[in-house]
Amino acid sequence: MDKLIQPGFGLIIWQAVIFLVVLFLLTKFAWKPVLKSIKDREATIEGALNAAEEAKAEMAKLKSDNERLIKEAKVERDAILKAANETAEKLITESKLKAREEADKEKEKVLVAIENEKRSAVASLRKEAADLSVEIAEKVLRKELSQKPAQDALLDSYVKEGELALLN
């Protein structure tokens, strides 16, 4: 077994020579091309991935732009609608107010006219009544002087007449 841990001279020489030759050959014909192709492929893949990432970012940007535009449009629409509503409401209230004012004014005018008429009517009635009473009083006084019963009858008829006239 002692040979086991004594390196053989010949094998060392062979191993060194063969290993160096293989190292040279493989480096030249295998490792360099393979590593280069792997590197190239990785670069391609990385490039593709980057491009995809960029496209994705672009898409996201476009989407967010769109969303922003839609949002803005919505806001604008809402604002317009709101303004229109407000205007309409205002118009309605205003017209209502105006109408009521007008009506009130008309009413007042009519009331005033009625009052005036009433006042003039009362005044004229008062004058008529006064005239009539004066007239009656005159007539009564005249009859009184001639005959008592006739005078009474006459007074009655005059009062009736006066009443009728007043009523008419």
Partner: peptide, 9 residues
Amino acid sequence: GNIAVTLTL
């Protein structure tokens, strides 16, 4: 498993 080989490596 030959020590000459591993020695060289």
